[in-house]
């Protein structure tokens, strides 16, 4: 299990940041992703795997009209 924005979520071996975004339907483009406090560079989400018990933060910038 991992934690994504405070919610518990099923984890599997080799799970990537991109997969997490897809499962959570996080389609907003202006986001910052941190895994265990470390900032993940945009453009590397497909290649970045997330370890079990990771704390993942997907911070959505405010936007809104």
């Amino acid at each position: 299990m991992i934690t994504v924005n405070g919610d518990r979520m099923e984890w599997h071996d080799g799970m990537t940041v991109a997969e997490i975004l897809e499962i959570r339907n996080y389609i907003f483009r202006m986001i910052a992703v941190q895994v265990n406090g470390e900032l993940i560079k945009r453009g590397t989400y497909e290649q970045t795997s997330v370890p079990d018990e990771a704390d993942v933060q997907v911070i959505h910038m405010i936007s809104g009209g």
């Binding site: 924005n5 405070g6 919610d7 996080y26 907003f28 933060q57 997907v58 911070i59 959505h60 910038m61 405010i62 936007s63 809104g64 009209g65």
Partner: peptide, 10 residues
């Protein structure tokens, strides 16, 4: 407009 900060980012 705090919905993302609150509901999504927690």
């Amino acid at each position: 407009w705090l919905i993302f900060m609150d509901m999504v980012n927690n």
